[in-house]
């Protein structure tokens, strides 16, 4: 048995700044994970559908436009509606510190802002996925 960790990296909403998302995608690949990258301007609905079809363990959402308080929780809600609430959701991008606790309350399990060391994100995923698949 060789179960690989699968991660969906997606950018919801309208901003086109994908450097961060691409950096994360590559870094997670280099950490041995299988990363599905969907590109920019995805709706929460299509992100959730993609996550289910791709059977991912984790969804990484990246947003720099300021709509995170709406779009990140929307993804979590839709996952629950689709009976896929077990998929881990994390977020990143330009997120004001004062919003982080709200997002966590809404089910986003971690928020990584600029300057985060990539090892921290890799450790977070490894740890969470191990717990989830137990």
């Amino acid at each position: 048995m060789d179960r690989k960790i699968r991660v969906l990296v997606a950018k919801p909403g309208l901003d086109g700044h994908d450097r961060g998302a691409k950096f994360i995608a590559r870094a997670l690949r280099n950490a041995g994970m299988e990363v599905i990258y969907t590109g920019i301007r995805q709706s929460p609905e299509s992100i959730v559908e993609t996550a289910i079809q791709e059977d991912v363990d984790v969804i990484g959402l990246s947003l720099l436009s300021g709509a995170h308080n709406i779009l990140f929780p929307k993804v979590v809600t839709l996952l629950k509606e689709k009976n896929a609430g077990d998929i881990i959701v994390m977020g990143g991008g330009v997120i004001p510190v004062e919003d982080i606790s709200y997002l966590k309350e809404k089910g986003i399990q971690a928020v990584f802002t600029p300057g985060t060391k990539i090892g921290e994100i890799v450790d977070f995923i490894n740890e969470k996925v191990e717990k989830r698949n137990k």
């Binding site: 995608a25 590559r26 997670l28 690949r29 280099n30 950490a31 041995g32 994970m33 299988e34 990363v35 599905i36 990258y37 969907t38 590109g39 995805q42 709706s43 609905e45 299509s46 559908e49 993609t50 079809q53 791709e54």
Partner: peptide, 15 residues
Amino acid sequence: GALLGDRIRMQQHAM
């Protein structure tokens, strides 16, 4: 690891 990017071109069919 792998970066799976074929899907980007087909995302219009996601729904």
